[in-house]
Amino acid sequence: MIRLSRIPHQLLTWGIPMGPLMLLRTRGRHSGLLRTVPIATLRHDGHHWLVSPFGDTHWVRNLRADARAELGRGHRFRPVRLVEVDDDRKLEILHAYRGAFGLVPFVRDAFDADAGAEPHVFAREAHRHPAFLIQPAG
């Protein structure tokens, strides 16, 4: 996984647009140092979302400790606040994420539910895929 993320990470660091991929910058929950990871943003129902197909990753744990982060590429980052959702919206978000990024092999493999499944099918695995609403910082 780390090897796969190096190329998008470097291209985004140079400021090269890569569709929905952005750099997420969080503060390490133990070290306090800035941590940056490439992430796919989902636009759904008039909002932007982050979903972790790989579960409780370091960036997820960092956001749970401090919801303030930055999104961007190159030298252009904007401060955001990420709010974890675990309500009725989550199943719809997971469904939309799986549909939008289902052709990406590691996303497809991370979900048990198929892209064409109804949103309620994602309830069985919702605990494995944290989802965050992206809001302006403030």
Rank of each mutant, 00 (worst) to 15 (best):
F122R: 04
G72T: 12
L21C: 08
M18I: 15
A126Q: 11
R6K: 10
A123G: 06
G46K: 09
P53F: 05
P105E: 02
A137F: 11
L50K: 08
P136R: 10
H48D: 15
L21Y: 10
G102H: 05
F111R: 02
F111P: 04
A113V: 04
P20Y: 09
H44P: 07
Q10A: 13
H75I: 01
D86H: 13
R128F: 06
G32C: 14
F132A: 05
L34Y: 13
P53R: 00
H30V: 15
T26W: 09
P8T: 11
L71P: 09
G28S: 00
D112I: 09
G19F: 12
W59R: 04
A117M: 07
D66T: 00
L50D: 07
R43P: 05
V37H: 05
A117E: 14
W14L: 15
A131G: 03
H127Y: 14
G116P: 03
G72R: 06
A113S: 14
G15R: 01
H47T: 10
D109P: 04
L33W: 12
R89T: 09
R64A: 03
V51A: 05
L50F: 14
L33A: 15
G99T: 06
L94W: 06
L42M: 11
R27L: 13
A126K: 13
R6Y: 08
D112A: 12
L12V: 03
E92Y: 08
H120M: 08
G28Y: 01
H120R: 11
T36C: 09
H9L: 14
R61Y: 02
R78F: 02
R43D: 15
I39D: 07
K90N: 10
R89L: 09
D109Y: 12
L34Q: 14
